[in-house]
């Protein structure tokens, strides 16, 4: 008897009033969780254009880290062939010069990276090299930040701290006019 009475109640309509709330809940959930594909990349500050050629003769050779990338996408670093995977550690050693070697940079703020490529160098290789050099500096900044302030280096640090770090290890990269070799079809 009791069973039949509960069955007859089922014919009532389901209350749909809360459906809109559920819909909005889902909507907000998706709004929060979906990320719009954003543009990311390597941020670079180009040097201002000047018609005079920069004079690099008064730079000491020990302070210049020359990187050449040729049209065959091979690397020549300070006169020696190098694999791209070794570039980061080598650059770090050059900039920081922890063992005070005579042939590496005098001080991190005197080190200059000179990057030169052919017109036939592939963009992928160029960006890879640039990425490695930037990564070398980033790792040095990170180490210095941990030593000085005990926190990892990031863009969220106070501007003053970032300035101190970048003042001690400035990111100086000079890009020479490429040689017109291996220009493609």
């Amino acid at each position: 008897m009791a069973k039949t009475s509960s069955r007859s109640r089922m014919s009532n309509e389901i209350n749909a009033g809360s459906m809109a709330d559920i819909a909005f809940l889902l909507l907000i959930f998706f709004l929060v969780t979906t990320t719009i594909a954003e543009d990311k990349g390597i941020l670079v500050k180009l040097p201002p254009w000047s018609d005079e050629k920069p004079d690099i003769t008064q730079l000491k050779t020990r302070n210049v880290y020359s990187v050449l990338v040729n049209a065959q996408n091979m690397l020549l670093v300070r006169g020696e062939e190098m694999d791209i995977s070794d570039l980061r550690d080598n650059a770090k050693e050059f900039i920081a010069n922890p063992t005070r070697r005579e042939d590496l940079s005098e001080a991190p703020n005197k080190a200059i990276i000179s990057l030169k490529n052919d017109r036939g160098t592939s963009y992928r290789t160029y960006l890879e090299v640039y990425n490695e050099l930037k990564a070398a500096y980033f790792e040095l900044w990170d180490e210095l930040s941990r030593r000085k302030y005990g926190i990892p280096y990031s863009e969220d640090m106070s501007a003053a701290q970032q300035k101190v770090i970048k003042g001690e290890i400035p990111f100086v990269i000079s890009e020479a006019e490429p040689t017109s070799f291996g220009e493609e079809n």
Binding site: G41, L46, P48, W49, N117, S122
Partner: peptide, 28 residues
């Protein structure tokens, strides 16, 4: 594009520098 050679990229960079547009982002 990753397979493009630096020649055209260089020309664009020079033109950007001449136009005073120095903040550049290599998309990756």
């Amino acid at each position: 594009d990753g397979d493009v050679t630096m020649g055209i990229v260089q020309d664009v960079k020079v033109q950007l520098r001449k136009s005073g547009q120095l903040k550049v982002n290599y998309s990756a």
